[in-house]
């Protein structure tokens, strides 16, 4: 039984929103999504080798939300995320080698091997932090927005959340506070319909999440989560509002994860969701959709696609080799940074 259908416009939606965008911009979005996909696939392929001793939460299927959102941000803007953080980290410009070193528990990982896959950080890129507790990053991001406002900085904060995040009281508290203080923050809810293996219907009454958010008296939007341009457009509008001092926005982007909540591979066959449902969403794979549009319109040549694939493949191979050759932490590292000086 297909419980959660795709309700977007598919290729038509891409075609509609692509109007007015340069081909180079569209190809850039395509390349960013493809790069995340290929990195995730390589992590997945190598996961059983046990070199990456860290829980993984793959974003395969959800690349459009990360890429579409971050394309509307500047480096100085801050992104906070949840446990499923690879996409946001990479889309915001996080360093791939530092990420893979972190996942391989190496001393030169982006968090010095104290964070792992769920705690990717790259402050230079504006990837400011994550929380492995659902909803944990939401108030922290709200506080970052308060700091930006109090310091009169031209900076917008985005916090990536999931559907289950909206069930945590702290999220409601944070929306209330952000609306009260008109903070420059965007709550981007990637609604993938499942919290681990619990479907949305067992957790929330049958109403759209963005309608719940609207009760906190802030503008809300529903963006097609498989359409990178829809996410870009919604984020761009929210960013403009935030920069103009008009306060926060909540964006719901329905999307589907093609893999299990955690680990490699899909776990639909365990029975909590129908494999036909995944197959349905795979037909509107965000990367495939944009690729179809680009090839149909002749905006990308097969030679370009081959070159992009090769570049990505080389970059990934080099980054994995770098990580595997990187040093492990030493015992003295454990005792550092418990307290700040």
């Amino acid at each position: 039984m297909i419980r959660y259908c795709y309700k977007g416009e598919g290729l038509d939606g891409i075609a509609r929103l692509a109007q007015g965008h340069e081909a180079a911009f569209l190809v850039g979005l395509y390349r960013s999504m493809l790069r995340i996909r290929r990195i995730e696939e390589e992590i997945e392929r190598r996961y059983h080798e046990n070199q990456m001793k860290t829980p993984i939460h793959l974003v395969i299927g959800q690349e459009a939300t990360s890429v579409g959102c971050c394309a509307a941000l500047r480096t100085a803007d801050l992104v906070y995320s949840s446990h499923r953080t690879h996409g946001a980290y990479l889309a915001k410009g996080g360093d791939l080698k530092a990420m893979l070193c972190e996942m391989h528990c190496r001393a030169n990982g982006c968090a010095g091997s104290r964070g792992g896959s769920m705690h990717l950080i790259d402050k230079v890129a504006g990837m400011a932090g994550t929380s492995a507790v659902v909803g944990g990053a939401v108030p922290i991001a709200t506080g970052a927005a308060l700091a930006a406002q109090m310091k009169h900085e031209d900076r917008v904060v985005v916090v990536f959340t999931g559907d289950a995040t909206t069930e945590e009281g702290v999220t409601s508290e944070s929306l209330n506070f952000a609306a009260l203080k008109r903070l420059p923050i965007i709550f981007l809810c990637e609604n993938n319909f499942y919290s681990v293996q619990s479907p949305l219907a067992t957790r929330q009454p049958p109403r759209e999440i963005h309608r719940w958010a609207a009760a906190h008296d802030l503008p809300v939007a529903l963006a097609d989560g498989v359409n990178v341009l829809a996410v870009f457009q919604a984020t761009q509008a929210a960013v403009a509002r935030a920069r103009a001092g008009e306060g926060p926005t909540f964006i719901e982007a329905p999307v589907y994860r093609f893999r299990a909540h955690g680990g490699a591979g899909d776990d639909s066959r365990m029975g909590y969701r129908d494999e036909a449902e995944r197959a349905e969403w795979e037909r509107v794979c965000p990367i495939k959709l944009l690729e179809t549009y680009l090839t149909q319109r002749g905006l990308i040549q097969s030679s370009t696609m081959a070159r992009v694939e090769a570049e990505i493949r080389d970059e990934i191979a080099e980054a994995f080799a770098f990580a595997l050759a990187s040093p492990n932490p030493v015992e003295a590292d454990l005792y550092r940074h418990v307290y700040a000086d």
Binding site: A128, V138, G143, A147
Partner: peptide, 13 residues
């Protein structure tokens, strides 16, 4: 809870 996180987020920034 949110206000504690807001304080932490402000402190981090």
């Amino acid at each position: 809870e949110s206000m504690m996180g807001v304080a932490a987020g402000a402190a981090m920034n």
